[in-house]
Amino acid sequence: MTVLISMINTSATTLLVLMGLAIVLGLMHIVNLAQTGFMAVGVYTGLEIGPRLGFWTGALIAAVVTGLLGAAAETLLLRRVRERMLETMLATWGLSLVLTQLIQLRYGPDSRVMATPLHGSFALFGTTWQKYRVLLVVAAVLLVVAMWALTRFTRVGLRVRMCMADPDLAEDSGINTSLVRQTTFVLGCALAGFVGVLLGPISGISPNYAGNLLIPAFLAVMMSGRTLHGLVISGVVLSIVQVGFAYWSKPAYATVAVIAVAVVVLGVLPDGIDVRRFRRAHV
């Protein structure tokens, strides 16, 4: 039972982290290796603000701060290497180093803890559930549902889908695609900051915050075949593998197992997990 709960919790964490990555990758073809850097900036902002103005205010301000950072990075750096995937990866990787080390300069390398805004636990199905962790699961589900609803039912979502499907045609339909792309990147970064704070109370906080979450999230994005359901399936599968290995074998092997699963899945399904993949063959 504890394993199951742990799997659910890890899935939630992974989904929270990978959504930001996936939006930015899907729309801008930017592999944002600075995602954890933004999460770290977010969580330290939360640490500063939280005790004074409350946890949730801290989370919102963190989102604003990382959003602004994202806007600056997009305008000053990433725009210059647009559509060159390797260059954006290296640039965001450099950015991640700079952010992490700046935090270390300011706050030192020591681990910190963040107070949880929701204490206590309750019993259900013969086991105890911590309220805050349940809240995170709910948040992850809400995020996925919101993304689905947003892209499916709103004009903003249609705009985003148009840009993802065919940027040229979106331009021909009167959409300012570069504005949409910029906004998306900023939103992805803001989401990273917000999620950074959300995960604060359940994690040890150090400048290398969330470093261990980046790789599973990226592997999941890689496996997903660029669809929302693919993302969810990949995130959950990899989380289950990770927790399962950590529980029945050694945590160290879990990191290797996650990579192996991703590579094997992509070996079998080169287009990733996408039930509609039959339409997407290339010549």
Partner: peptide, 10 residues
């Protein structure tokens, strides 16, 4: 346009 003139997945 002659090609790429529809969002074929929509």
């Amino acid at each position: 346009a002659q090609e790429g003139n529809l969002f074929t997945d929509l």
